Simulated assay, not measured.
Amino acid sequence: MGSSHRVRVQWDCDGLNLLVSIRDDGQGTLTVHDESLRPIAERVTALDGILSVDATPGWGSSVDVTLPLNPRSDTRPLADGASLTAREYDVLRLVTAGERNQAIALQLGISANTVKFHVSNLLRKLGARTRAELTALALSR
């Protein structure tokens, strides 16, 4: 998180999720797309969790992670052998219906950033370069 002098890590549980909050007093320039967060974001996404970042320039950054205590373990193979999680199927269904990330997030009760990670995983798993190509591939299967 940059040139921080103090970092606060807090753990909690709401009964359904493990909640992790990390705050620093750094430069406040961290974003959810920061390359240093990519490994964390990928793992959080794989567990159907939520990663959010809030930063205030000059005041520091806050990274919040919500991980379900009982993550979905079911995966369903597509015709070509690619396996998708149930959440990826939910996102794919809405992408093929033409929904935008914010609308998908509202319908599924997740953040728009989490939708972006799921779409990114779908593009990679299905070998598509664009949402249109992703939709065409999904509809052809």
Score class of each variant (00 low, 15 high):
K116W: 08
P39T: 02
N17G: 05
D25A: 02
V32E: 04
E88T: 11
S120L: 10
L51E: 07
H5K: 14
L19S: 04
V119W: 01
G58F: 04
H118S: 15
P68D: 04
D90W: 08
Q27N: 00
S21A: 05
H118C: 15
I40K: 02
V65E: 00
R8W: 11
T114K: 14
L67V: 13
G15H: 13
D48A: 10
R93W: 13
I40A: 08
L30Q: 00
R124V: 13
I104T: 04
A79N: 09
T31D: 00
I22C: 07
G60I: 03
V65D: 00
H33E: 01
G49F: 09
T56K: 11
V53I: 12
S36W: 02
G98E: 07
L69C: 09
L30C: 02
D80P: 02
V53C: 11
V9G: 07
V115K: 05
I50E: 10
E42L: 11
V9A: 14
L18N: 01
A41M: 05
Q107L: 02
N70V: 12
S36I: 12
P39E: 05
S61A: 12
W59R: 10
P77F: 01
A82Q: 12
S111D: 10
G98T: 06
R76M: 05
L67K: 03
L108P: 05
D24G: 01
G58V: 03
R87Q: 14
N113S: 15
A105T: 02
T96R: 14
D24P: 01
R87H: 12
Q10T: 14
S111M: 06
A82S: 15
E99K: 08
A79C: 03
P39N: 03
T75D: 03
V7P: 08
L37W: 02
D12N: 14
A105F: 03
Q10C: 08
L106C: 00
T75W: 02
V115E: 06
D12W: 09
P77D: 03
L16I: 01
D64A: 05
N70Q: 12
A79K: 11
G26D: 05
R72N: 10
D54C: 05
V91W: 10
S52K: 10
L19K: 08
R124W: 14
S36M: 04
D24F: 01
A97S: 08
I104A: 06
Q10N: 10
A82K: 09
T31C: 00
Y89G: 09
R100Q: 07
T45S: 13
L123D: 12
G60W: 01
D14C: 08
D54A: 11
E88Y: 07
C13S: 13
G98Q: 06
A112Y: 03
G49I: 11
R100H: 06
T96F: 04
S73E: 10
A79F: 04
V20H: 09
Y89S: 06
W11T: 11
K116M: 11
L16Q: 10
